[in-house]
Computed example of a mutant assay.
Amino acid sequence: MPGVHKKTTISFRVSEMERMQIEANIKSSGMLKQNYFVRASIYNRICVVGKKETIYPLVEELEKMQKTLKKLSNEFMNNEVSINEEKLYDLEEQYKAMVSAIIKMLDAAEYLWNSDKEKSPK
């Protein structure tokens, strides 16, 4: 509830890669950071059902990633690379984290498009 402060604070340290994965998961969930951490800690699995408010930011993020990759591809083809190896590695890690978060969300919502027949073993 807005304006109501809870008494307990929980904190922890993470690596840069873990932070990027957590941030990507939060972004893909569409939740507030605090709510995401509480639910993830209590329930250990977050299933976000696709809705316009959740999906649209993911589409925007994927479009941004696509534009950046196209730009880099053109630069590589023309030998005009404007990104150093460290920045390229950081970009790769950021993209891996975001794509991983999107895949997790889609896997959790798989029941929406798979029929019961497809799920049952033969």
Rank of each mutant, 00 (worst) to 15 (best):
P2S: 10
G3I: 07
V4G: 02
K7L: 15
K7A: 14
T9L: 15
S11G: 10
R13W: 08
V14A: 13
V14T: 14
S15L: 09
E16I: 01
E16W: 00
M17K: 07
E18I: 07
R19E: 08
R19W: 01
Q21M: 06
I22M: 09
I22K: 00
I22T: 03
I26W: 07
I26H: 00
K27V: 02
S28I: 10
S29I: 09
S29G: 09
V38A: 02
I42Y: 05
I42D: 07
Y43T: 06
R45F: 13
R45D: 14
I46C: 12
K51R: 15
K52V: 14
K52H: 12
E53V: 05
L58A: 02
V59M: 05
E60P: 09
L62M: 15
L62A: 06
E63Y: 00
K64Y: 00
M65Y: 08
N74D: 12
F76R: 13
S82I: 06
L88T: 10
D90Y: 02
L91W: 00
L91S: 04
K96S: 06
M98V: 00
V99K: 01
S100I: 03
S100A: 13
I102C: 04
I102E: 04
M105C: 10
M105I: 10
M105K: 05
L106V: 12
L106M: 02
D107L: 14
A108T: 10
A108H: 11
E110R: 13
E110P: 04
W113N: 07
N114W: 08
S115W: 00
S115T: 03
K117D: 13
K117W: 06
E118K: 12
K122N: 11
K122E: 13
